[in-house]
Design a protein around this nucleic acid. Structure first.
Lengths: 349, 349
DNA sequence: TGCTATTCTGTTATCGATAACGGGAACTAT
DNA sequence: ATAGTTCCCGTTATCGATAACAGAATAGCA
């Protein structure tokens, strides 16, 4: 393995088989206009030399790379990595390779370098898998750099002129709170995610709306803003206990923060679910093993990634056939489901 | 944005600026042999047209892509995604793009298609980030397909002729068990990972060795095999409680399984850490918020990814300069550290 | 037999960029 | 005044593959 010959090219195959490069090309592309005997001879040489056509050269002449550019952030968190997992699956199934860029933070404004790289690498399409945080979507309307490369955005406020795929955060949160209400809880506090996140705002809005729809209190002292981490959840629940003493349930905007609620309850000897109902969001793998097991919202991040790629591939194909019209931007919203576990089940059903 | 002109090529820039393509190329590559005036004229046109050289074409002529192929598996788990995160960072810093493939399972034998894709895409190097499981490394010695592409393997039994980067699983597990012993626990059970995993075997071996070094019991009925999941951990701890009644501590091979131990202890009203010490492995983000907070081993998976890329880049450079000799295969082992939290602290220090 | 179809294969140009070389103009040296 | 430099820029070939065209060989038919 230490001594390597350069990989064989179509030319070497051609001369070894005593044919032109064009004939080898025809064989590789399984075209019918090659005599059976010639084809076999070429195939033998290909096999013997281990010839592998260069996708780089093909990309150049075909003006397409079968490569999708993916932008993500926070891969060390469960959500983004599950999304990427869905993306890799769908890309594989559709015959596309992936080029992945991870932003150092969620809230990055200057995306020019990344777009330029994608453009110069000639990706066929882009999946923008960074959730909407703060102003990190402003570039979309200011940057013409995309040069018409098909793009799908994940997890953001739908916009008519963009293709967006997202999970229904509002609906999920609504399910969570309605469930608590159905269980007879009447003083339901909320630990939100950071409110510069679109998802956090959606979940929070659903909490407020659900309570108001049932004439239950939803005032400013009934919720606290966290930052998704268990640490922030621990602080938040302290604050909530203090400023909302009647509270008998908590809807936390993710499972990590819900975990802190469970821990705090245990320290204060508050019985869950009898004296405090708890619901989380995301269904991280561990949440079924919390004490007690956590009721949560299953958000299927991987499915979001899959749909994004499926849709992107359709757009790419339509784009190649100049059928942009038939593929107008579209918003795809996936519905989450609720997983009812012990932490919220006060009523035996 | 709906109407797009094809991206400008060097030829268009050249004719717009009234020079040859070669001159444009010289400007792009900041070569000195261009008159200041000409250079400026070309730069203006480049700016105006938004010209962006095609990396595809460059790759073809330079015979290098500045692209690293990464193979991973189980991205939805914390470990692999943290590794990828480290890889993306280091690749970015070194000016390399990443092409990522995710295997559908950990134990995949037939890697030919993936290698072929990498070869045809002409990646400059490969990071094999799939942990060693079962026979999933056998192909290495049987497949000549790599054609001398620089490759770094992560998380596997070191082999003299391969470059391997790994965390020291044995050392980490040893730290865990020695810590329990220092805390005065004397009947330390073990929930291992699946033993077709190299990492699981390493951690288990360290458990056994540590106990034996201190003349403590380490028999077959003192450990149970899990499969990393909390579910398997729950079953395992049941079995252990039954077959090892004197057990006063558990070393679980990862945090997810340790979580189940905490849960089981709570259900049985066994006090942690007084009556049962618990140590996990991996330091997942949630483990600091378990009840009680979990002592665990910090394994720095992202650092493993970073080192892999750093090393790979060096190999690639040496390879280009025909200096293979100076860059013999090397094994890099990173040391984990122990994070002592409440679940194992019987002695107040 | 001669002429058109059909089948198969080779030649040339091309994708977008760059290396290698060539050559003109201005300038210096002998 | 002629040769040698230096500076600047253009021409040609090339990377590896394929599309478009062309042409040779065989077959088919009157």
């Amino acid at each position: 393995m230490s001594f390597q010959t350069r990989r064989p090219t179509i030319r070497q195959v051609a001369s070894a088989a005593g044919v032109s490069t064009q004939t080898v090309s025809r064989v590789m592309n399984k075209r019918p206009d090659v005599a059976a005997e010639t084809r076999q001879r070429v195939l033998d040489v290909i096999d013997q030399l281990g010839y592998q056509p260069s996708e780089v050269a093909r990309s150049l002449i075909h003006q397409r790379t079968y490569m999708i550019g993916v932008v993500t952030a926070g891969l060390k968190y469960t959500g983004p990595s599950r999304t990427i997992s869905g993306i890799t699956q769908a890309a594989e199934e559709n015959g596309y390779a992936l080029m992945i860029k991870e932003l150092p933070r969620f809230d990055v404004h200057n995306v020019e370098p990344i777009l330029k790289e994608f453009i110069s690498r000639h990706v066929d399409g882009i999946v923008w898998a960074v959730p909407e945080v703060g102003e990190n979507r402003d570039w979309v309307d200011q940057t013409p750099s995309l040069r018409g490369i098909p793009t799908v955005f994940l997890t953001m406020q739908p916009q008519a002129h963009l293709t967006v795929v997202s999970m229904d955060n509002y609906q999920g949160a609504r399910l969570a709170v309605e469930h608590l209400i159905a269980q007879g809880y009447e003083h339901i506090g909320h630990i939100s995610g950071p409110l510069d996140w679109w998802e956090a705002r959606q979940r929070m809005a659903a909490w407020k709306d659900a309570l108001q729809a049932h004439d239950l209190p939803a005032q400013d002292c009934h919720w606290v803003e966290g930052n998704w981490s268990s640490t922030s959840g621990a602080q938040a629940i302290q604050t909530l206990f203090n400023q909302y003493p009647q509270m008998d349930a908590v809807f936390a905007a993710n499972d990590q923060m819900a975990l802190s609620v469970l821990q705090a309850a245990q320290l204060r000897k508050i019985a869950v679910p009898q004296d405090l109902g708890v619901v989380g969001f995301d269904n991280i793998a561990e949440s079924a093993f919390f004490s007690p097991p956590l009721t949560t919202i299953q958000s299927n991040q991987d499915t979001v990634g899959q749909w994004a790629v499926e849709e992107l591939v359709k757009i790419i194909l339509a784009h190649r056939q100049e059928q942009q019209d038939t593929f107008a931007p579209k918003t795809i919203i996936l519905s989450p489901t609720i997983l009812i576990r012990q932490s919220s089940q006060r009523i035996q059903s």
